[in-house]
Structure formats: structure tokens, C-alpha cells
């Protein structure tokens, strides 16, 4: 009797979860089928499927791509994200090793300044930072990488330091006796041991930089648009925007994320959890 009841509960729970799953992906599917409808058939009836009157094929995609320069936005997003993530991994891991192994007041002050930067909201530095970036001619896709390295340093050095502490100093001393200078020791001994942490930090930073809107908008937004800036650019004045193009661009903005997620789902989820628990 309890066995049967257990089975019914199981089936009911799975049915309930499946329904929830559908509800969770529904918003994306609604955007997807609207992206194939003419722009004047979207805002009034977003829940109507496309029909022979409203179906426009790939027209919205064509218009949207032309309007916001989607492919160049994709290129800038990719370039900035990849360079920034590699830059952060390299600089933050080196600094984390240094501040963990070398004692001194200056080093300690730097470490606390980095940790402190994690809690400062972006709005605090938004205006002054874009001024400084302007002054130093950092308003280009390479310059913004420098800014991301600076902003990413706090969390990344903090997380790397936590793992460097777990590396036995004896390993590094053995390398030194074998004739390694600190640079060699770092790249041959320390860095390989940090690899699992590096993957986690890379994922956390990649998600943040890929989706970041304000920093690229304020610093390079007038000349180089990343994907979030390009999507927002489509907005224009309220009411006058091309809803069809917007739907199509939302879909194109989501596709790379879904592909990335499909390939590295496990490390994304475990990275995010570890990041949350650490930070």
C-alpha cells in the first residue's frame, strides 16, 4: 500500500517538475517564436504563434543584424571577454602567490585593498573611472581589458590566495634548490597546481564580463558596442523601436550562452557554487 502511494507521489512530483521546467523555458520560446513575426504583430499579441499573415521568416534577423552590427558586437564581446579572462588569470594568480608567500606591511595593505574592492558597488566609481580611462586613452577594446583586470583583481586574487595557502611550501623550496628562479617556480610548480581554481575563476569572470553592460557602455560604447550595449542600443525612444529586430537580437544574444552552457555545464555549475561559498 505505501509502495503504491510512494510511486504515485514520485510520478506526481516528476509531472510537477516537468511542468515547472516548461514554465522556466517558456519565456525564451515566446521570444523565439515572436522573432519570426512581423514587428507590428509582436507587442499587441506576444502569445500568438506566427501564422501565414504574421510570419516573416528571417527578416527580423536580417534587420537586427544590420541595425546593431551584431557580428562586430559579437566579435568585440568575444575579444574583450577572452583577453580579460586570460589577463585576470595570469595577473591575479601571480599576485596571489606573491601576497601569500611574502610578508610585509605593504603586501598586507594591498591584499586588504583588493578584498575591500569586492564590496564597492560599480556606481561608486562609474563616473570617475570613465574620466580616468578617457585621460589615459583606454577607450578602446584593448584598453578596457586593463580596466577589467583591475576590477576583476579583487575577487580573483582573493580566491587564488585561498588555494595558494593549501600548496606545501616544500614543493616551491625543492624547485628553488633545483635552480629555479621565482618566475620558473611559479610557472612550472605553482600555476599547474592552481588549474582547477583557475577554471572556476575563469568561468565566474567570463560570465560577468560577457554580460556586463555599464562599463563597456560608458567607456567604449560610442565607438565599439559589445552585445549587451548593442541590444540596449536597439531600444531607441520608447514605442519607436523595431520589436521584431529586438526579438531576433535577444535570441542571437542567448544562443552563444546556451552553446557554452551545453559544453561546460558541469564546470559552470560547480564553479558558480564554489564561487558563492568562497566569496
Amino acid at each position: 500500500m505505501t509502495h503504491v502511494r510512494g510511486k504515485i507521489t514520485t510520478v506526481a512530483t516528476i509531472a510537477f517538475l516537468s511542468l515547472l521546467c516548461l514554465l522556466f523555458v517558456l519565456p525564451i520560446f515566446i521570444v523565439l517564436f515572436n522573432s519570426f513575426k512581423g514587428q507590428f504583430f509582436i507587442a499587441n499579441a506576444p502569445f500568438a504563434l506566427p501564422n501565414t499573415d504574421t510570419f516573416v521568416g528571417l527578416l527580423n534577423y536580417k534587420n537586427g543584424i544590420a541595425k546593431i552590427g551584431f557580428f562586430s558586437a559579437f566579435g568585440y564581446s568575444l575579444l574583450i571577454t577572452v583577453l580579460s579572462v586570460f589577463g585576470i588569470l595570469l595577473t591575479a594568480s601571480m599576485t596571489a602567490w606573491y601576497v601569500t608567500r611574502v610578508r610585509g606591511r605593504g603586501v598586507k595593505a594591498l591584499y586588504y585593498a583588493l578584498v575591500f574592492s569586492m564590496i564597492v558597488p560599480f556606481q561608486m566609481v562609474m563616473f570617475t573611472m570613465s574620466r580616468v580611462a578617457n585621460l589615459l586613452h583606454l577607450e578602446n577594446p584593448l584598453g578596457i581589458v586593463v580596466l577589467y583586470i583591475g576590477f576583476g583583481a579583487g575577487m580573483s586574487v582573493f580566491m587564488f590566495s585561498g588555494f595558494v595557502r593549501g600548496i606545501p611550501v616544500a614543493l616551491e623550496e625543492a624547485a628553488e634548490i633545483d635552480g629555479c628562479n621565482p618566475i620558473k617556480t611559479f610557472f612550472y610548480v605553482v600555476f599547474p597546481l592552481l588549474k582547477p581554481t583557475a577554471i572556476m575563476i575563469a568561468i565566474l569572470n567570463a560570465m560577468w564580463i560577457w554580460n556586463d553592460y555599464l562599463l563597456p557602455y560608458l567607456v567604449i560604447g560610442s565607438q565599439y558596442r559589445t552585445i549587451p550595449v548593442a541590444v540596449q542600443y536597439l531600444q531607441g525612444g520608447y514605442g519607436s523601436r523595431d520589436m521584431g529586430a529586438l526579438m531576433a537580437m535577444l535570441i542571437l544574444a542567448i544562443i552563444p550562452i546556451i552553446i557554452f552552457y551545453a559544453f561546460s555545464q558541469k564546470s559552470i555549475i560547480s564553479g558558480v557554487v564554489a564561487g558563492a561559498v568562497k566569496g
Partner: peptide
């Protein structure tokens, strides 16, 4: 490599 970007973009 960390300190210079950190000073520019944050401090």
C-alpha cells in the same frame, strides 16, 4: 601587472 590596473580602475 595587478597593481597598475587596480590603481587606474579602482583606487
Amino acid at each position: 601587472p595587478t597593481l597598475i590596473p587596480f590603481v587606474i580602475s579602482f583606487l
